[in-house]
């Protein structure tokens, strides 16, 4: 267990660092999927194999691919200098992040967790299914939330389509503006 934990933790955290520090956006995306894989491994350790499968399918698969598409559509040739990928407040951001991480971790350790013990997760897929339907002792609110989530996904799809779609002859692309922007 401990070995697996250490391996997963270092994979997750190092990949997360990689996301922040890579110069190439595509590398960032690949690091991100590595980090997500690490989290999926944690889910297996935490008795939730079904959720781990979701994680791999949705995050490592779908979200990463979507983000890669997003990168393809929105990137110009890569920058070479490291400094140019960062905003001006790079140091304050660094210290804020260190502070946040350390403080959160410290507070977690401060709590007395003696009453907890592992093994309550739904090992079976059917267990997760029951939870999501709000039956067999799971909070009944799930049966509502499940519907709300489906509406949310539908609305998100509509929103994404309507924002990214453009008809010709409309909007901001006036002739000449492209060249001007790129040359600058």
């Amino acid at each position: 267990m401990v070995v697996a934990f250490i391996f997963l933790a270092s994979m997750t955290l190092l990949c997360a660092m990689g996301v922040v520090l890579s110069r190439n956006v595509v590398h960032s995306a690949l690091f991100m999927s590595g980090s997500f894989l690490g989290v999926a491994g944690f889910f297996v350790m935490l008795n939730s194999p079904a959720l781990a499968a979701f994680q791999v399918l949705i995050y490592v698969g779908a979200v990463t691919v979507v983000i890669l598409f997003g990168i393809m559509f929105t990137q110009r040739p890569q920058v070479r200098r490291f400094g140019s990928i960062l905003q001006r407040q790079r140091w304050s951001g660094f210290f804020v992040a260190i502070g946040v991480g350390a403080f959160l971790a410290y507070m977690m350790g401060l709590q007395n967790w003696d009453y907890t013990e592992p093994g309550n997760g739904p090992r079976e897929v059917s267990g997760l299914g029951e939870i999501l339907l709000g039956v067999n002792g799971a909070p009944p609110i799930f049966s509502l939330l499940f519907e709300v989530i489906s509406i949310l996904l539908l609305v998100a799809v509509i929103a994404a389509i309507v924002v990214s779609r453009r008809k010709t002859g409309e909007g901001i692309d006036r002739p000449g503006s492209d060249r001007e922007e790129v040359s600058r």
Partner: peptide, 21 residues
């Protein structure tokens, strides 16, 4: 581990310029 990962996420969200990142 979760807290540290969150911290790294905050760091990246604060310092990176590229919106996709």
């Amino acid at each position: 581990v979760g807290a540290l990962m969150f911290g790294i996420g905050v760091w990246g969200a604060l310092v990176r310029r590229n919106a996709v990142v």
